[in-house]
Design a binder for these strands. Structure first.
Lengths: 207, 207
DNA sequence: ACTGGTCTTGACCATTTGATCAAGAATGAA
DNA sequence: TTCATTCTTGATCAAATGGTCAAGACCAGT
């Protein structure tokens, strides 16, 4: 079964359709209940497939989980990758922070999925953290350091600042239950962007 | 069984001892694996009791979970409660932020327990969020607003700022796996405090 | 229409796990 | 010591759940 993929690396129409269905449903369910809390039945039901049928595409629950993680990881880092040392620091960081806030509101499930995974010690993406992500963050830290050295922004520890950006922006996705309990669900995105940008960037701008 | 508690509200020596054992073990296990991921066997093993014996003190897994949550909630908010409008804003906020960072490093399990609970929609403490916590945050927001109105700090949205403090400080506990993968485990607490304080407070200080 | 491969599923299995219970051991007040 | 209460546990249960399998349905190229 699925031989063709190994042999000619060809996906049938049905494979593509169903795998997309499954990945989407799995993201929802895994992000809402965590790896252990999610059940294969639940995911199968959510995308209208039978459990054995789902397990025909992903033989083990863990395979599906890893597939969802990897499928979501790439796009999650696009905005950080775009951070460019040649441009103006404040507008670059503004763009990055706004992009992160947008992502938290458009795809909170992705944020929650990672949050859950890392919260539990990143058992499935530990290698990715120490590899790909480490390199990316290292290079982007260098950019921030250069901006500081060039006197374009006030001194700041690059890693601490990146963590702060992640923490604050993803807070609105990961802890939406708390945020909504405290300020209600109808605070406009534009206001949140403005407030977060002020808090994170005002201290960096040169007088 | 446990009649005396209902009748004269008296705990025996053994009850106090074992309940403390259980709560401590349960905090560790629940925070590491989440409610669903933790097993009663695991908690029982961790505190050296048999499973039926543990269930003698907390009849259902969920009872134990709620007990752990409530037991940890109170102390978690003490530093915020102490925020006092009569003192200097910067030193008050410095004290609060430092206290939160200290807590994240002394008791990361507590932070992770809440993070996990809220991440999954706060099914067990939703009422607490909309009640106790809502009132507390409302009153403390007012304090920050007063400081702004009195011209003691630059303008900031109080709720957004409180969220930022929570997000950044708890990030070091909740996402320690990621933090350690990116900056290593041996960054001194004092440096982290200094960096976080700069990022969060520099923008608030009047020139 | 034929046919080889792909897709689907009902039935089923083994394990995990939350919870129960009866019976016995330990405790501590009188 | 006595004895009612409290504490402990081995054995066991029922439900949930990840995963298997054989048999059949469906699909697409010829």
């Amino acid at each position: 079964m699925l031989k063709s993929r190994a042999e000619h690396a060809v996906k049938t129409r049905i494979q593509t359709e169903n795998q997309n269905l499954i990945l989407k449903a799995a993201l929802d369910v895994f992000s809402a209940y965590g790896f252990r809390g999610a059940t294969v039945d639940q995911i199968a039901a959510q995308c209208g497939l039978s459990k054995p049928n789902l397990l025909y595409y992903y033989r083990r629950k863990e395979d599906l989980y890893v597939a969802v993680l990897e499928h979501t990881l790439a796009e999650w880092l696009i905005p950080l990758r775009m951070l460019d040392v040649k441009n103006d620091p404040v507008s670059e960081l503004t763009r990055y922070i706004e992009a992160k806030i947008d992502m938290s509101f458009t795809n909170p499930a992705a944020s929650k999925l990672f949050a859950n995974e890392i919260l539990h010690g990143a058992p499935h993406i530990g290698g990715y953290l120490k590899g790909q992500l480490y390199d990316l963050v290292k290079s982007k830290s260098l950019i921030i350091r250069q901006w500081v050295d060039q006197g374009k922004i006030n001194a700041v520890d690059p890693h601490a600042f990146i963590f702060a950006i992640w923490a604050v922006t993803q807070h609105y996705a990961d802890f939406s239950a708390q945020v909504e309990a405290l300020i209600g669900p109808k605070v406009p995105l534009s206001k949140i962007k403005k407030d977060v940008l002020e808090i994170l960037l005002r201290g960096l701008k040169k007088i």
